[in-house]
């Protein structure tokens, strides 16, 4: 009996949905996809930005790419940024948000405090951290190390320590971002659930495990996926933290996007940069699809 009516409701809903999407789809097609396909096309050419010819050279750029040791180095550096940066910032962001959420008062002050690094200009922050990392007696970190009887560290001047040293301020700034979104998620959970759980005698841990985390799932999915993309695209921090933006010493901190940027705008090798962009795109797409699938099936 209800079928015809619900059919028409579904029908109008669908028409509304398409109406809502008309302008955005047009926008994405012209402003986003067209340039993206343009980049895909460029990866098959030898274009160098300033020249008029774009010669089709097939897969030569890709072949060169796979033989380029710097490409592999930047790829593994990028991996390090993601594998260390994301879990640490995600976990710190959650712990802070969880605790700030449970404060009796002063939430706003704490949020502002932890959010300040995120809203500060990266260029200025990079300079400050570079001073912090200087050798003693200028560098504060090394001064502290010496005063507690530990040996000095090279930090940005070391091939092994430079990458974590750049990651630290990145996480430092990123925590504020994670914190805000986690808080928005936590605030979306109705107090009623907790009140009901308390009546049932559930302790804090139970509440966290059986109420907070499950209900935060859309937030967590969002943060993991966007976080992965953000760390895979890490760029500005390295450009400003490593000297003259070279991603050194000896390419030990250079991420893929910095290499893309250098190839495109310093060497003017647009074709090569475009090929790397395609690879980066495919990597991110693959990871995102897997993440979406895994996190959906966990239900």
């Amino acid at each position: 009996m209800k079928r015809p009516q619900s059919y028409t409701i579904e029908h109008t809903k669908r028409i509304w949905a398409y109406t809502f999407l008309v302008v955005p789809v047009l926008f994405y097609l012209t402003i986003r996809f067209y340039p993206t396909f343009y980049a895909f096309f460029l990866s098959l050419t030898d274009w160098d930005i300033v020249s008029r010819d774009k010669n089709f050279i097939g897969l030569t750029n890709y072949r060169n790419l796979f033989q380029d040791p710097i490409f592999w180095k930047t790829l593994s550096n990028t991996g390090f940024y993601v594998l260390y940066g994301l879990p640490i910032s995600l976990l710190s962001g959650f712990i802070l948000a969880y605790n700030i959420d449970r404060l009796k008062k002063g939430e706003g002050v704490f949020k502002a405090l932890y959010f300040l690094p995120y809203i500060t200009s990266m260029v200025a922050i990079a300079w400050v951290w570079r001073w912090l990392y200087q050798p003693a007696p200028i560098g504060v970190f090394n001064k502290i190390l010496i005063s507690i009887g530990l040996p000095q560290q090279k930090f940005l001047f070391s091939q092994t320590q430079a990458l974590p040293s750049i990651l630290a301020p990145t996480i430092w700034a990123d925590v504020g971002f994670q914190l805000i979104i986690f808080l928005a998620g936590l605030k979306g959970i109705s107090r009623q659930y907790y009140e009901a759980a308390e009546i049932d005698g559930a302790d804090n841990w139970d509440q966290l495990r059986y109420i907070t985390l499950p209900l935060l799932k859309p937030t967590i999915v969002f943060l993991i996926i966007t976080g992965t993309i953000r760390y895979l695209r890490i760029f500005t921090q390295v450009l400003n933290m490593s000297y003259q933006g070279e991603g050194g010493p000896l390419n030990s901190t250079k991420p893929l996007v910095l290499y893309i940027y250098h190839s495109a705008f310093q060497q003017f090798d647009m074709g090569y940069a475009a090929a790397m962009t395609v690879i980066l795109f495919l990597i991110i797409l693959m990871i995102t699809l897997i993440q979406l699938k895994v996190m959906k099936s966990e239900d």
Binding site: F157, S158, Q159, E246, G248, P249, L250, H262, Q266, Q267
Partner: peptide, 20 residues
Amino acid sequence: IDESVQRKVWIDAYDQVVLN
């Protein structure tokens, strides 16, 4: 021809000697 490359080879050479 490409000053950025021609500068970087010396920076890398220095790091190779001093760090490696």
